[in-house]
């Protein structure tokens, strides 16, 4: 097996979830999704626009903070990544806190744009490195962004997949249920089931998530690491240290 860091596997795995699109956007505090978006852009022969909000170079908005949301509302953004401190089996995510709101026992930063983006962006990819019963729960304590909507509520998109430190799952909004798509090298389907707090569909045979090849790792460690250093310096230094 190629010697590859967990962050590199996750970036390549997220990139593999990105369909053929025109515009991929990456929100706050998302270094691995940013790496995935740049990887997709470098490998495709199509013209694809990448927006990384915390970058100057990869942020071409000129009409203020609302422009991302207005562009997304119009369907001009095809892919967006959302994290969740908790994610449940119906693809609801919680970015607010633990406990019974507003009587929280733990407080997280807040909802950001998630309750909006999950409706207007066709392909939302959920991402959470920690895959445990603590993070992947039966029911989130607070629904920041619903994973599905009842009939009659306008909705263009929503979660399509969940990528974690252990596995990839696909989400079916009509059935409101995840299905295990692959387990990362070193993981087993049973192990993933034990580490997941919600029920999901298990295929008969579960493939292993492909490890990034040498060319992919070369892109991540070379040009992509250099780009990430502009807007995620701590992440770049930790995962892609500059040789002394």
């Amino acid at each position: 097996m190629t010697d590859c860091k967990p962050e590199e596997l996750l970036a390549a795995t997220l990139a593999a979830q990105i369909p053929s699109v025109r515009h991929i956007a990456v929100g706050a505090a998302s270094p691995i999704p940013a790496a995935a978006a740049l990887l997709h852009q470098m490998r495709t022969t199509e013209r694809v626009h990448v927006t990384i909000l915390h970058s100057r170079r990869y942020n071409s908005f000129t009409d203020g903070g609302r422009e991302l949301f207005d562009a997304a509302a119009q369907g001009r953004i095809d892919v967006f990544f959302l994290g969740g401190v908790q994610i449940d089996g119906e693809a609801n995510i919680n970015l607010v806190g633990l406990g019974t709101y507003p009587d929280l026992t733990q407080r997280f930063p807040g909802s950001f744009g998630a309750p909006y983006m999950t409706f207007v962006v066709p392909n939302v990819i959920l991402f959470r490195e920690e895959h445990s019963p603590r993070t992947l729960v039966t029911k989130v304590d607070f629904v920041t962004a619903p994973g599905w909507s009842p009939d009659g509520v306008w909705r263009r998109g929503g979660p399509k997949a969940l990528v974690t430190g252990r596995a990839v799952m696909a989400f079916d909004a009509t059935r409101r249920r995840f299905r295990l798509a692959s387990v990362h090298p070193g993981e087993t389907a049973d192990g993933v089931q034990d580490a997941t707090g919600f029920a999901f569909d298990m295929p008969d045979a579960v493939p292993t998530t492909p490890v990034p090849d040498k060319a992919t790792l070369g892109l991540l460690r070379g040009p992509i690491a250099a780009k990430l250093r502009e807007f995620y310096p701590d992440f770049a230094d930790r995962v892609f240290p500059v040789p002394a």
Partner: peptide
Amino acid sequence: ETAAVTLGEFGVAPCFTRAVL
């Protein structure tokens, strides 16, 4: 009134978190 308070890459905003709890 806020969509989020955080120190970004450096973690939670400690005073905000304490005051909310």
